[in-house]
Design a protein around this nucleic acid. Structure first.
Lengths: 295, 295
DNA sequence: CCATATGCCTGACTTTAGTCAGGCAATCCC
DNA sequence: GGGATTGCCTGACTAAAGTCAGGCATATGG
């Protein structure tokens, strides 16, 4: 833990929560309790499911329900059953609510401008550039990587997204049926593991490793969503997979990949992988890599 | 109002309040109400006057008093009269309070590290650099500039700091008695104005303008504290003074300055001031400038 | 079709936060 | 030395936030 860097982050936290955090609240709450204002804001012009609101705002079911009742009483919101599942209810804004939302939006703009306005000349664009950088890297640090059963809907969604992505990039498309199949049980401990990367509970990446006895651990399906590409998430997934295999006694890891996935190729090389002879007959593979693991 | 810049600031606000604001609170409040935790933190190992705490935390007198009573009840804090003024009371930490404070400090470190830890290689230092830039520029945008009676203690403090600064920089020191004196009444509307720049209610800069009939408005005592130097505060003070004079009908402004104040010279030139012949016999002046004001 | 789970709701709280009007002692300023 | 001011305190509130135990429909999986 680098104390100098930590001190800088703490200074940042202090200034920013003071300047942004507190004032943002004050701008949002227009006479209304803060929680109500936030809720109104989160519902947004397109409406939102109650469960989604609860998750986003981190509110107790009872508390949220009451807040919705209040906003409904004020004629700003209506809550009605959703189309499919009759238990799920969707909150949406009335015309009055939409007007109020627009006002909040304006105030958010005004607040943002109040930060920029006192700065002259190049300082304004410098601030915005630095903010964009901070935001981008904070998002990167908000991505968490955790084991997940390969049958989980979020895992499935990632694998589908992976198939879609590679289908677009391989010269001859991608037909999962022609690729050597990987069963769920091969990616379930102790035979292997499937890691899911999430950002605010949304899946944004994945990776898996198969641990077969007496052969190197085999990495599969490393994928990162466009939303967080370029933030080092792929590399983190790879590191975690290697660590997982090493912790369970494997001393080497290998993988295959397609010649069109140039960033992946670069990542493997920079992560210390060496190109090796083909160890399988995977239909879509052009390169095979291996790396020794420190115990 | 540049909508693109505003949108960037809003994205930043959203990510940062989510990542920093909420979590920071959660790290701080260890089972304790947030306000108590914050207060404990603000008291700090060296103690603090009750009035200072009230100002820093923006709390009501009653509320703060009660919070102090609670912490005192928990054996974390003692409140005792200060040395000089018997009305002023100072809160300080007991041994238990100090231990608790240390724990909070550790947790703040841990939280800051949790932001950096997931980032690999150059991203970590890039984040810190960008944070430092954002912090610096946010501080600049937190500085407010407002008219203030020249007799106000904060104004006096600025003028003293100004005298100290120039005494150090002029070749032959600075004796206010040898400089042409400026009376308070000359800097009090309508004869003139004294502007005070503050950051979190602390004075960090000043500037004044004398408005005498039939001669150009005269700018005096533009000073910026080291704490915010290089952030464009001096330029903002100058702009405000010019605007003040212009709004009251003056069409030109002038000032004198010392050859050793190189940044000030550069600032006046870049702000459109032209060097002119001496218009007074000020003991410490080497350069005289003037500028026409747009009505 | 029945047991179980899920999603949202209500009632009945407790805990924090924040406000306002005084009150008392110390201090300041003629 | 006496009136005004300052600094902190208490009492008596209201408002908002947050918690917990059910309850009632609507799904879902044998």
């Amino acid at each position: 833990m680098d104390t100098e860097l930590v001190a800088a982050v703490r200074r940042f936290n202090r200034t920013v929560t003071q300047r942004v955090g507190a004032l943002d609240d004050a701008y949002m709450a227009r006479g209304r309790p803060l929680a109500q204002a936030r809720l109104l804001w989160e519902i947004g012009p397109d409406g939102a499911e109650v469960a989604a609101l609860r998750a986003r705002l981190g509110l107790d079911s009872g508390h949220l329900s009451r807040l919705l009742r209040t906003l409904e009483g004020d004629g700003l919101v209506t809550v009605a059953p959703a189309g499919g599942d009759g238990r799920v209810r969707v909150a949406s804004l009335t015309d009055a609510g939409r007007a109020e939302w627009t006002e909040l939006d304006k105030r958010s703009d005004a607040f943002a401008w109040s930060v920029l306005e006192p700065l002259a000349g190049p300082r304004r664009t410098r601030l915005v550039a630095a903010m964009a950088e901070v935001e981008r890297l904070l998002v990167a640090s908000m991505v968490t990587i955790e084991p997940c059963p390969p049958g989980d809907p979020r895992a499935r969604a990632c694998v589908r997204a992976y198939a879609r992505d590679v289908a677009r990039r391989f010269d001859d498309g991608f037909d999962p049926a022609l690729s050597s199949p990987v069963g769920d049980e091969e990616l379930t401990p102790p035979a292997g593991v499937f890691l899911l990367a999430t950002l605010n509970a949304e899946p944004v990446g994945c990776g898996a490793v198969k641990l077969r006895p007496d052969v190197p651990a085999e990495i599969k399906r490393v994928w990162v969503s466009d939303a967080v590409r370029g933030l080092g998430v792929g590399r983190r997934i790879l590191d975690e997979l290697e660590r997982y295999a090493a912790a369970r006694g494997w001393t080497a890891v290998r993988l295959d990949t397609n010649r069109n996935l140039t960033e992946a190729l670069a990542m493997y090389r920079s992560a210390g992988y060496q190109e090796i002879e083909p160890y399988n007959t995977e239909r879509y593979a052009h390169h095979w890599f291996a790396k020794r693991l420190a115990p």
